[in-house]
Amino acid sequence: MNSDIDVSETLDVRGENCPMPVVKTKQAVDDIAEGETLEVLATDPGSMSDIGGWAESTADVELVDQQETAEGGETIFRHFVARVA
């Protein structure tokens, strides 16, 4: 929210665990247009390596950034995934 990244959609998978964050990220990325960026909010610490690894090995997708923020005593993992083709 306090980020400079231009986000077109936000996927909220807070409270969901493996494999849902990465599977739902894939579905949401399919729904955005080329050049757009998806923001993913997660509470699953595993989402950092899962979404990072998924983006790395998936064509047409680029991991723009991953952030870890504390909000109201809860750690939020924020992922920014761009569709590049």
Binding site: V22, K26, Q27, S57, T58
Partner: peptide, 11 residues
Amino acid sequence: LILASTAAAFG
């Protein structure tokens, strides 16, 4: 089921 849906996400 976890591996199947994950692999599908990987294309």
